[in-house]
Amino acid sequence: MLQREIEDFIEKVRSRREFLKMSGKGIAGITVTTSVLNLMGCSNTETANQDAPKAAAFVIPTGLIVSEPNKCTGCQRCEMVCTVANDGKIHPLISRVKIARNFNYGKEMTDNYREENGYYGNFVMTPETCHQCEDAKCAAACPQKAINQNETTKAWTVDKDKCVGCGACTAACPWNMPTVDPETSKSTKCILCGACADNCITGALKFIPWEKFEAMLRRNGYRLS
């Protein structure tokens, strides 16, 4: 069972990575089970609760981004470091990784808020990251064609000179991840700089380069390619 979970995961990663190489486009997250997390050295336990928000892995050109909600303590330092690194200032609104907006009540506030996600409820909060989608709706929606894939990083990247701050990218993104900075009227969007994961205080957000991922697999008797 555990072995099959791991093999399934590796197969998904493999196919998405191949797809990525061919198309040069990213793809949405893969749910990560406990056994897979163990494999990647993210967690050490077997007692996953089926109702819990799932950890997710995103295949990006340079590796995997793994997000584990159970480890997120809501310190919001990922957002701060993101905006310091990219904007030279601090505000959760313009951060490319989002946690503050889910801090109090999770993704939506309900009458049952004391039982649901967020600090007013069960304390669970999920950091949201840009999916670098295969079919990037933000790029497609941009009237200025200001969002293009960077050749080196393969991240969908905003050309600040072209951006007019219209907000079409925010509206088009299913998760509203790009945000227009009200002070500059430019869209802020993840460029895969990795500062958020690099500074996560518990490893709730983790970036695993391909090389490291392959080494982990080899140590456990698996292969990616």
Partner: peptide, 10 residues
Amino acid sequence: FWGAANPPVE
């Protein structure tokens, strides 16, 4: 551990 985390966190 954080034993009531889902899954628990060591």
